[in-house]
Design a protein around this nucleic acid. Structure first.
Lengths: 346, 346
DNA sequence: GTGAAAGCGCTAACAA
DNA sequence: TTGTTAGCGCTTTCAC
């Protein structure tokens, strides 16, 4: 079994061949191809005809070599994310990026960055293989590529852990506002003793969502004391819920920092003979299948992951093209109301 | 707010600079970089030292221009798939591809192919922008890029609808064997009246999984008559289950052609007051969250999606490098036994 | 084993 | 408005 029939079957027409066919110089063809302003219509037409006839496609390598632009955007993905292929959030962000770029002249290059070969990624980026890079830091706040930004523009997904220490460009979801909205919704349905299962405080989403819950509780004049922490896994959510209930204080509402932990909390609530939403109304964050397939379906905060990716790409392209862009872009979240926060007597 | 600080901050060292630093000619540096056999150890060492000191990285554009190789592999994704970001299967395949390529010198280029701009994709591929292409046809059997294979090697995910009409290289999952295994498992747990909810018969997975069910039933001497069709959505699974039960014939086992349809069937089974697995044991196919989060958890057939992607990439790289490869590669599936097929009295 | 020189296909001054 | 010319950084005969 042989293979690779070689691109030599099709001896790829060159600019020179087009020039010959159209009876003009290579420079003129180049001008037409690049839509330069100063070409007479008659000549342009003749050239375009030749291009069509020969089925000419410019050679990117040659173009990049002289123009110093690759028309490539690198998407850096941490290997851990790649292995944890159970993450719909990540996949959606990537698709948003790809979708946006498909309407531009840029091409998307996916790089898997592992700790082991981290310099391979750096070298690739520094080697002039891309005009810019997108780093999907998976909301962990890792902006360790910051230094590279001196050599090529970088845009992160998710804010850095310490904003003050970074000058990086990033696009993020407004976690504080989202968490506040979920909590306000709980309050609006008549709940007063609202607990929260927070995420890790060394991750921006964990930290910000707790802040949002606090803000809403404070604004409503309710005590923000019922807090337990988890690590975003269902199991940790279950354990946090157990600790919460073991405090012996009344709880009629719960905001979990993500849907997975809410799902974990569900099992404990039911196991204790309590009903959702009758005894405890529950809201989550993320809007993924853990919430949508739960029974009762979980009220949650939707993150615009597709838009997040799209926006990251847009910000990067603007930077590359030298157009003005804000260093930080926040994407709005939206509340998805489902059965888990239904009013008690509806 | 400005931007793109230009790669000129770092004036990217060239081969020429390395040559100067090492006191040799550019040709020699090139030989060292490309690990040519005929370079004396002493010189090679000196060159490597210079490379390290200058932090030299070869310019791909220049290299591609002369070598006629791009070291790029294109991944063509249909836009519908990109929009339907709810598909973990697809995301995992892509990650498998990326993971494999990260250990090679190839780089992954994602292309979104829409019907509207389909020639953009073709032109890209024909324009010598990639050394080969991977087409994730999402198991729909669409091998419409077949003609391109004359100009550059292409490997598909999923077999073509009509094998006879295509000479394409592809990697697929053994749907027939998987479906048969699930059905045999049902039989082994003592079920005899086993129905199936099949997928669309114009899609290879739909067609093949029905064949697998039939094969298992025939081998066991059981009648293969209880068949209804769905379109792989949960709703269609629910309706098919309804039709199945409305036939009035006894059913004690069900093989659904995917987990989503199994989930749909679950709701109807429970709604009719039947118990899973006591009255009806259920098995699905895909092993995604529809099955793992269902109650009771669904026995299903696992597809090695990560491996599928990895293998597609491997087959393509072998073709590009002119090494022998089989035109068709089948990946094995595996049975995941869960509560939905537990023996009646266990 | 090493160097000199030509050229891959294109763009961008500069001339005309 | 169009053509001429000189490279971009690399690989690759061909001499030595």
């Amino acid at each position: 079994m042989s293979s690779g029939r070689g691109r030599d079957a099709h001896p790829a027409p060159t600019l020179e061949m087009v020039a010959a066919a159209a009876g003009v110089s290579r420079a003129t063809v180049s001008r037409v191809v690049n839509a330069a302003p100063n070409v007479s219509d008659a000549i342009a037409e003749a050239v375009n005809e030749a291009i069509l006839k020969l089925n000419y496609v410019p050679n990117r390598a040659a173009r990049s070599l002289v123009s110093r632009r690759t028309q490539v955007i690198a998407l850096v993905v941490p290997e851990t994310t790649a292995k944890l292929f159970s993450d719909p959030f990540f996949a959606t962000v990537v698709q948003g990026v790809a979708l946006y770029l498909s309407d531009t002249d840029f091409t998307l290059n996916m790089l898997i960055a592992s700790e082991m070969r981290s310099d391979k990624t750096r070298r690739y980026l520094l080697g002039g293989n891309a005009d810019g890079a997108l780093v999907v830091s998976h909301h962990e706040g890792d902006h360790s590529y910051d230094r590279l930004d001196l050599s090529l523009p970088i845009v992160y997904g998710g804010r850095p852990l310490l904003e003050s220490e970074s000058e990086s460009y990033f696009v993020d979801v407004d976690n504080v506002a989202g968490a506040a909205e979920a909590t306000e919704h709980l309050i609006a349905t008549g709940r007063r003793s609202i607990a929260t299962i927070a995420g890790p405080q060394d991750m921006p989403p964990g930290f910000d969502r707790l802040r949002g819950w606090r803000r809403a509780m404070d604004s409503a004049g309710l005590p923000a004391a019922l807090v337990e922490y988890g690590d975003f896994t269902p199991d940790s959510g279950a354990e946090a819920m157990r600790r919460l209930l073991d405090r012996g204080e009344p709880i009629d509402g719960l905001f979990a920092a993500n849907d997975q932990m809410a799902a974990g909390a569900y099992s404990v609530i039911l196991e204790r003979g309590l009903r959702i939403p009758h005894d405890i109304a529950v809201a989550g964050f993320d809007n993924n299948y853990f919430g949508s397939t739960a029974v009762p379906a979980l009220t949650t905060i939707d993150q615009p992951s597709l838009e997040l990716g799209r926006t990251m790409a847009e910000v990067l392209v603007r930077r590359i093209e030298g157009k003005p862009v804000d260093r930080v872009t926040m994407m709005p979240t939206s509340l998805v109301v489902r059965a888990s926060t239904a009013p008690r007597d509806a």
